[in-house]
Design a protein around this nucleic acid. Sequence first.
DNA 1: TTGCGTGCAAATTTTTTGCAAGCAC
DNA 2: GTGCTTGCAAAAAATTTGCACGCAA
Lengths: 139, 139
Amino acid sequence: MSETRATQLENALREAGVRVTRQRAALLRIIAASEDHPDAAELHARAERAGAGVSLATVYRTLTTLQAQGVIEKLEFQDQPARWEAADQHHHDHMIDVETGAVVEFTSDRIERLQAEIAAEMGYEIVHHRLELYVRRAR
Amino acid sequence: MSETRATQLENALREAGVRVTRQRAALLRIIAASEDHPDAAELHARAERAGAGVSLATVYRTLTTLQAQGVIEKLEFQDQPARWEAADQHHHDHMIDVETGAVVEFTSDRIERLQAEIAAEMGYEIVHHRLELYVRRAR
DNA sequence: TTGCGTGCAAATTTTTTGCAAGCAC
DNA sequence: GTGCTTGCAAAAAATTTGCACGCAA
């Protein structure tokens, strides 16, 4: 029983009571296959190219739905339209090269721990967080 | 020679070749006096209340100008219009209570150091960063 | 006096929504 | 068959911009 990731997700969605329409299946596959972090317009274009007719309004609605299901995550980099990525196994943060726009993913358990500590000290618990490093190649 | 913070800033702006108009002076004072993190519409409203006629377009243009001068900073919290704060002496990050919307400022040298380390490891240097903790009161 | 800054209204950009028709289950 | 989804076009929300006039230096 080897299923593609996208197929697994479709089943999970159905179980959660979310209808798997042609449009949702198409976007799910496109996002799962994306190595980068496309925005709504780009996903719309990719769906178009893939021969899947999906209106831009549906792209937006689907992204909201998939996010609510925890299947994808929304990224909001500085002064840019929102971008999206598959909610992968492991959480990670992003480093954005301000010169090229390249996005690199990274993780740091130590930073995560420190964040939790700081929140706790002030009487809070973290729901989620956002960490972005805007960087430049070191000379 | 005791000048208000706003007056100091006005002089600095003039020296940088930026004209200090009635509108800019008004916004500068309003932001310097703000304890919170108002967005453009709110600043427009406060200017109105203060009796300073400043059009919304000018609020936006002024914010861009002051940011370019390093006098104020732009905050972009999740799914919200941009907010602004005076670029104070010490850098800090933000913690947002997802239930009340309250914003708490905090700093952590250890996190800052770790960020620099991580970037360095990947051959980058940090230009600036953004760290937001979305939190909830611990029970 | 000079040209940068402002107001106003119109335009852009990104995202959301109402409504009638379509399709997943 | 039922009602959640979709497409389309219009609307909303946030921000930007063209242009003629005003004012800081």
